[in-house]
Computed example of a mutant assay.
Amino acid sequence: MDRNKELKELRSDDAFAELLGKAPPRPAPPAADEALIREAVHEEWQKVSSRHVRRRHVTSFALAASVLLAVFATLNLLRDPDGDIKHQQMATIEKQFGEISVNFRISDAASVAAFKGGDFIETGSASGLALGWHDGGSLRIDENTVVLFEAANQIYLREGRVYFDSETGPLSSQPARDDAVEFSIRTDYGVVRHLGTQYMTQVGAGELVISVREGIVSIDGNVTARASAGQKFAISASGTLSINDTNGVDDWEWIENSTPDISLDGRSVAEALAWVSRESGRSISYASESAEMVARQTQLRGNMQLPPTRALEIFMMTVDLNARIEGDVIVISED
């Protein structure tokens, strides 16, 4: 199936119905809210009709409009216990590349700066997102992934692959937190939760796969399991559980493509190396104490808009140190 072509068309009512089927039940909206929704649908219908779109698309919109109230009533994600509508910001976009669909419409970085509760996201081929989570941490969304922001600290992953880092990175613009970030990923296999960690969750090919780079991750569903750093477990559609070791940095390579751009102005080489380490999953090893001292005392200049491992090659050319990659380790030595 051509997913890029699929992204360029309005979703059919079948896709919407599937999403609704995954959502937990919520209370129906008040009559006043329902009237506002109907008014918005009517306004959008007039816009669509005026453009003389093909009959198939008009029919699809009519069907989508008919279920819009059901979406609101079923998901009702933006309502607090007091009944007030709140468009709660869930995440800000730190990096975007490729084609992204937001609520069934193609979007770009210029038109969307943040996501709210209830937003439905789909990435196309060779696309991705880096998001700053509202409560702290970083969420990465890989290509060909479908995600719904369904609660204050939870997303629903229908298919594809996401990565979450609950801690503030060495060069992150987000403020550091002393307490753990609450975040969970709901899937059709169960709810994935973490305990201070970096981990990846993937849904596809009839299974759920969770890989843990740091910390502990649990799954609570038809199968209950826990995995720690260096482990990954897979759960099949039939409920079969298997636990294995991760494949080192190979499992995490895609994450580097969505690493947000950073400024190195005034940062030490040691800080830049710590950033490369956290993003790539490789540890830093200094060949000598003097090499580590040079790294701590030498400051860098400029901005980086490259994947961390490539950025390492560039900024190390400007200092009196060498870097070589040996498997999962970056060795730093003097010239």
Rank of each mutant, 00 (worst) to 15 (best):
K95T: 02
R213N: 04
A291R: 01
V191K: 08
I106Q: 15
E271F: 12
A311Y: 06
A323W: 00
E6G: 11
L7G: 11
S66M: 13
F183R: 00
A270N: 00
V162P: 05
I314S: 07
Q202K: 07
S211C: 06
R140F: 07
T309K: 05
A15G: 08
E207H: 04
D84Y: 04
V147A: 09
V181Y: 00
A35N: 14
G302W: 05
N322M: 13
S12E: 10
T197M: 00
R310Q: 12
Q174L: 07
S184H: 06
F104C: 14
A17K: 10
S268W: 04
I155L: 09
T298S: 03
P260M: 07
F120D: 13
I219N: 02
V249C: 14
S172N: 06
L321Y: 02
A227F: 05
S238C: 05
E94L: 15
A23P: 06
G98Q: 12
A311H: 09
A225H: 08
A176W: 01
I325Y: 02
I332E: 01
L195N: 03
F149W: 10
W275K: 08
V102M: 10
H134V: 13
N4I: 11
E34S: 09
A91I: 02
Y199P: 04
N222S: 11
R140A: 10
I243W: 03
V112P: 09
H42F: 15
T309E: 11
H42G: 15
D33L: 03
G190D: 00
L20C: 10
S101C: 12
E94Q: 15
T201A: 12
V217H: 01
D80E: 10
R301I: 06
S101K: 14
R161C: 07
S268Y: 07
L273P: 00
E256I: 12
K95L: 14
S238I: 02
I100S: 10
E39A: 13
I314D: 03
F149T: 05
D80P: 09
G124C: 07
V192N: 00
V102Q: 10
E279V: 07
F164W: 00
L19W: 12
F149H: 09
F16G: 11
S66V: 13
R54N: 15
A323L: 06
I284N: 01
M316V: 03
I106R: 15
G190I: 04
I106F: 15
V223C: 05
E292I: 13
A205L: 12
S283P: 03
V147S: 06
S111E: 13
